[in-house]
């Protein structure tokens, strides 16, 4: 992409991004007819894209059992009916509602609203701009007959018809048979390599992120499968992009804006290791964790990624 695309991604983020807030305190959950109260929970409160609603997530709790009790089955679409995030402070409760469900948070601590650090916005926008150079890699509609789509794809590839092959990859997403099945990742890798050959960097990177995040449809999931599948993050280096900024940009999160392909923490840590760039990235994460001008949510994430590294 040209300089203008990076500039426009940055400006959009600068206008719309809002820091994700951290809240520590007691949660009272009235969801699906149940009533649960858990003390000393840490939640993140994130403004959703182009909406008045918030995504709520229990980040951690005092014990694993408390976390299981407090965690929310449905994170997005919560309306703030009492309180204000802009004026949030310790001791003043918030109430969120969605349909018949209700969540009351009694905060003992709320992270400051703060400003967004330019360096973090820049890293976020670097990733967003690169991924946005191609449209989303999969159509909403998927092939109804997996075997037939696979056979047509093989025929298009054998005939050297790259555009036709791309059109099949867009709809063909084989379902994994079990958590250890690496077939979905292999097909995504073939698709990514085709995009790479055709000079479609955004397409390549979107698929690369799915492989790094192990984000494929399967009939069963388990952490054994997640551990078994390689991230192939070393492939990033051959694209010529700034791998450190790209991986650091994946660490950064803001509310109010969206990007293709977000990764979970464990897979991101492993990708950083397998990229071969762990040492310089760890140094920058340590600086971010201690940087009082960065918002507290991203400082927590930097701390977590660094500790896991």
């Amino acid at each position: 992409p040209g300089m203008a695309q990076f500039q426009s991604a940055y400006e959009q983020a600068d206008r719309q991004a809002k820091p994700i807030r951290l809240v520590q305190g007691r949660i009272v959950k009235e969801v699906d007819g149940g009533h649960v109260e858990v003390d000393d929970v840490v939640l993140s409160v994130e403004r959703e894209v182009e909406a008045e609603t918030y995504a709520l997530r229990v980040e951690f709790a005092e014990t694993d059992d408390a976390y299981s009790e407090a965690r929310l089955g449905s994170r997005s679409g919560w309306m703030l009916v009492t309180g204000s995030m802009e004026r949030a402070e310790a001791g003043v409760p918030f109430v969120f509602e969605k349909g018949a469900s209700r969540i009351r948070i009694e905060p003992a601590y709320v992270s400051p609203a703060g400003r967004l650090l330019m360096e973090a916005l820049d890293a976020w926008a670097y990733v967003a701009a690169l991924l946005a150079t191609d449209p989303p890699v999969y159509d909403d509609e998927r092939a109804t007959d997996e075997e037939e789509a696979g056979a047509k794809l093989a025929a298009a590839r054998a005939a050297g018809d790259k555009e036709k092959a791309l059109s099949y990859y867009r709809i063909w997403r084989p379902m994994g048979r079990c958590s250890m099945d690496s077939r979905p990742a292999q097909v995504a890798r073939e698709y990514a390599d085709l995009c790479y050959d055709m000079g479609k960097l955004g397409c390549f990177l979107q698929l690369q992120l799915r492989i790094m995040g192990d984000q494929f449809d399967r009939v069963a999931y388990s952490s054994y499968g997640e551990a078994a599948h390689a991230t192939e993050a070393e492939r990033l280096t051959e694209t010529g992009l700034d791998v450190d900024t790209f991986l650091l940009g994946l660490v950064i999160r803001f509310g109010g804006v969206s990007r293709e392909g977000e990764l979970g923490g464990y897979r991101l840590v492993r990708s950083i290791k397998e990229s071969g760039r762990a040492a310089p990235i760890a140094a920058r994460l340590a600086a971010w964790a201690e940087d009082a001008t960065l918002d507290e949510y991203n400082r927590l994430t930097a701390t977590q990624i660094l500790a896991l590294l």
Partner: peptide
């Protein structure tokens, strides 16, 4: 760790305790 914000310190303490 003294340079970290309160919630990051709390997370780190619990992470080390596990």
């Amino acid at each position: 760790e003294e340079e970290l914000p309160p919630i990051a310190r709390l997370w780190l303490a619990r992470h080390h305790a596990k």
